[in-house]
Write a protein that binds this DNA or RNA. Sequence first.
DNA 1: CTCTAAGTACGATGGTTGTCGAACCATAGC
DNA 2: GCTATGGTTCGACAACCATCGTACTTAGAG
Lengths: 111, 111
Amino acid sequence: MVNVVITESERAEVASCETGELELAAVLHALSDPIRLRIVTELSDGVERSCGAFNLPITKSTCSHHFRVLREAGVISTRVEGKSRINVLRRDPLDERFPGLLDAVLQARSD
Amino acid sequence: MVNVVITESERAEVASCETGELELAAVLHALSDPIRLRIVTELSDGVERSCGAFNLPITKSTCSHHFRVLREAGVISTRVEGKSRINVLRRDPLDERFPGLLDAVLQARSD
DNA sequence: CTCTAAGTACGATGGTTGTCGAACCATAGC
DNA sequence: GCTATGGTTCGACAACCATCGTACTTAGAG
């Protein structure tokens, strides 16, 4: 059993050395919240939706937070359209980088 | 935009109503840490390993913590053998409940 | 121009998490 | 019985996170 002490930043650095690991962990973390899972599931039909179209049981600011987490992990992308922000699932980039991951999560959710 | 306030426990309860969601979120969360991803990856060859066999850059207690998170999410199982705790990846149960998920994660990691 | 609708940004707060060290426990070997 | 060895448990701590309310921005409607 090793007994080395490292800081948080060093830990993140170590992680990013192994290709793909950091981004994968970020995507998995983004998907590991019920609210965000619900958003992703609803977006998985390919229909673009504004943030307000999800009827989520949270306040506006919390809603904004969750969409940002998903956006920064690369799970969704958002474009401005009039007063609304339209959200789209970034299915193709995700499928290319993590083949099968999104499908597995979506299928698991719909069981 | 709805504006309902709920507590954390209520939120968890709501989540558990939709079948599979809670467990899925737990598994995804368990996998969203670099150290635990590494443990799962090493275990994915089917070889059973003691906790100390991973050479992780963390202390014993932190190590114990990560194995517990994986165990409680149902990702691994542990059995006592002499002085050691032998860890096994619960591949079949995982594949049955979340088909393709583990494979997708493992493949993404090895890119 | 004013008002409303849709979000974002900021600051606060309570809960969770990753980490550590020290103490503890169980087993094997002496 | 004594001593490693391999883990677990506990308490502490800093960082992070989900949540909220308030204030702000931007765009369309009147």
